[in-house]
Nucleic acid binder design. Structure first.
Lengths: 193, 193
DNA sequence: AAGCTAGCGGAGGGTTGCCTCCGGATGCAA
DNA sequence: TTGCATCCGGAGGCAACCCTCCGCTAGCTT
């Protein structure tokens, strides 16, 4: 029950003919990999090659490098937000922490994507909105329950987490340990101190 | 009194003739700007242009893009580590926090650099060592004083901070607020919980 | 001040990636 | 089955960048 579903149609929509749709999906998948491997500057011709389609097909579906970027990015965000559903059955703190963990895991490999999109993109802002509508309720619930300090907003948490997301961790264990430390910072200060 | 000064000479050394040295420095400065603005893929010809030297000169000083990268990077790290000197006059916690703030501030703009260097570079490892020898003592002192939890290492802190470093903050205020939250996570857990 | 040599600049050849364009193939509706 | 609208692929022109090479310039030394 995120706000997804009626998101902005600003970006390239999935084509209707069966073969075209196949190609579209193959392109997105290939692009995700290529960007993850080679960074934001991955060759579009390489993407087409991986997807097993002609370069022309790529350009028809995504007139611009950015279009392709955005399509990949949007899909990631969708998945993340979707995963917030059902989390409200957990206790407030656990729900928040669980989702934030997913946040990190989902976005961890998308460095290149994020870097490219961070600047001036309306898609980015609308995705941001989606993320907020998925995570902010969890945050507020935790604050009302007194298990998260009151002097910070959800946007602070997003920055904190997405910062970690960008860092390179040698092992998932260390990543979780560090995330744990960061999360401890969210706890309300102990009464005496 | 960091371990700087006799650092690895693996990389291009500053030339001896006056004009050459001028060009070398101009190149580093230009490169720093170019990388900050255009990311890791900035055009080397552009760098030379900014520095007001011929492309040949650039290639003579830095045979490889990576050489240039490393020269810029090393200089940044030097400055940061150097700034740890004298901090031990402050109380343990304050000293650590002060340095970490500098860490964030110094490295904040070097996204592109870091991304490129993060992989397989011996320069990177040696810089890492330098950072550790500058920061780890501060950390240990704070731990002995009981103002930082004992179950984490300095490397965890580095990850935490350099994560923040990567994130894009709209204002320095928010950046500091978030950093504050993260730092609170370093405090030892309050006795009861 | 005169010569030696380190250093300079930028033309240019090669490579790579971008993007357009259109003849041919193919899903889909009737 | 047939027709057509949609979609495909990749050749090819264009632009950007990489990097080498070599004739000239100008610090430095004596």
């Amino acid at each position: 029950m995120t706000s997804a579903g009626q998101a902005p149609e600003v970006f390239a929509q999935r084509p209707k003919r069966a073969d075209a749709r196949r190609n579209y999906d193959a392109l997105i998948t290939a692009a995700r990999k290529a960007f993850a491997e080679n960074g934001a500057a991955a060759s579009l011709e390489d993407v087409a090659r991986r997807a097993g389609v002609g370069i022309g097909t790529l350009y028809r579906n995504f007139p611009t490098r950015r279009h392709l970027f955005e399509a990949v990015y949007v899909e990631e965000v969708r998945a993340l937000c979707h995963s917030a559903e059902g989390l409200s059955e957990l206790p407030p703190w656990d729900a928040l922490v669980a989702w934030l963990h997913r946040f990190v895991a989902y976005v961890a490999t998308k460095r290149a994507l994020a870097e490219q999109l961070l600047h001036d993109s309306e898609i980015f802002t609308s995705c941001r909105a989606e993320i907020f509508s998925a995570g902010e309720p969890l945050m507020r619930r935790a604050q009302s329950a007194g298990v998260v300090r009151d002097d910070i907003g959800f946007d602070d948490v997003v920055r904190l987490i997405s910062g970690l997301t960008m860092a390179q961790f040698p092992s998932p264990e260390q990543r979780d340990r560090v995330l744990g430390v960061a999360l401890d910072g969210l706890r309300p200060p102990a009464p005496p101190r």
